[in-house]
Amino acid sequence: MDSLVVLVLCLSCLLLLSLWRQSSGRGKLPPGPTPLPVIGNILQIGIKDISKSLTNLSKVYGPVFTLYFGLKPIVVLHGYEAVKEALIDLGEEFSGRGIFPLAERANRGFGIVFSNGKKWKEIRRFSLMTLRNFGMGKRSIEDRVQEEARCLVEELRKTKASPCDPTFILGCAPCNVICSIIFHKRFDYKDQQFLNLMEKLNENIKILSSPWIQICNNFSPIIDYFPGTHNKLLKNVAFMKSYILEKVKEHQESMDMNNPQDFIDCFLMKMEKEKHNQPSEFTIESLENTAVDLFGAGTETTSTTLRYALLLLLKHPEVTAKVQEEIERVIGRNRSPCMQDRSHMPYTDAVVHEVQRYIDLLPTSLPHAVTCDIKFRNYLIPKGTTILISLTSVLHDNKEFPNPEMFDPHHFLDEGGNFKKSKYFMPFSAGKRICVGEALAGMELFLFLTSILQNFNLKSLVDPKNLDTTPVVNGFASVPPFYQLCFIPV
Rank of each mutant, 00 (worst) to 15 (best):
2 D>Q: 07
3 S>L: 15
3 S>C: 09
14 L>H: 00
20 W>G: 03
22 Q>W: 14
25 G>P: 15
33 P>Y: 00
34 T>V: 12
40 G>W: 00
45 I>D: 01
46 G>R: 08
48 K>H: 15
50 I>A: 08
54 L>F: 10
61 Y>Q: 02
71 L>R: 14
71 L>I: 09
72 K>T: 08
77 L>S: 00
77 L>D: 00
83 V>I: 14
84 K>H: 12
89 D>E: 12
94 F>Y: 05
100 F>C: 11
106 A>K: 09
107 N>H: 15
108 R>I: 11
110 F>A: 09
115 S>P: 08
116 N>T: 12
121 K>R: 13
131 L>N: 03
133 N>M: 12
133 N>A: 10
136 M>T: 10
138 K>S: 11
144 R>S: 08
152 L>V: 04
154 E>K: 08
171 G>D: 13
177 V>R: 01
177 V>F: 00
177 V>T: 06
179 C>Q: 04
184 H>L: 04
189 Y>S: 04
189 Y>R: 03
190 K>P: 04
190 K>M: 11
191 D>S: 07
197 L>A: 02
200 K>R: 13
201 L>S: 05
203 E>T: 11
203 E>S: 09
204 N>W: 04
204 N>R: 04
208 L>D: 06
209 S>D: 15
222 I>V: 13
222 I>A: 11
222 I>H: 05
227 P>V: 11
234 L>H: 15
243 Y>P: 01
249 K>E: 07
251 H>Y: 03
255 M>G: 13
257 M>N: 15
258 N>A: 13
259 N>F: 08
262 D>F: 00
263 F>L: 12
274 E>A: 14
279 P>V: 14
281 E>C: 10
282 F>C: 07
292 V>S: 08
292 V>H: 06
296 G>D: 12
298 G>S: 06
303 S>V: 06
308 Y>E: 05
308 Y>S: 05
311 L>Q: 01
314 L>Y: 02
314 L>G: 05
314 L>T: 09
319 V>R: 03
319 V>I: 15
319 V>S: 04
321 A>G: 12
322 K>L: 14
322 K>N: 12
330 V>Q: 10
339 M>Q: 06
352 V>Y: 04
354 E>R: 00
355 V>S: 03
355 V>T: 06
355 V>I: 13
356 Q>R: 05
358 Y>E: 00
358 Y>S: 04
360 D>Y: 02
361 L>S: 09
362 L>V: 12
365 S>Y: 15
373 D>K: 03
373 D>C: 03
376 F>P: 01
377 R>T: 02
384 G>T: 03
386 T>E: 08
398 N>W: 09
401 F>R: 04
402 P>E: 09
403 N>Q: 08
404 P>G: 08
416 G>Q: 12
420 K>Q: 15
420 K>E: 06
424 Y>V: 07
427 P>N: 08
431 G>P: 04
432 K>N: 15
436 V>A: 14
442 G>E: 15
445 L>T: 10
449 L>E: 00
450 T>N: 05
450 T>V: 09
452 I>G: 02
458 L>C: 03
462 V>T: 11
463 D>R: 09
464 P>R: 08
468 D>V: 13
470 T>R: 11
477 A>M: 09
478 S>H: 09
480 P>V: 07
484 Q>E: 14
486 C>R: 14
486 C>E: 08
487 F>G: 00
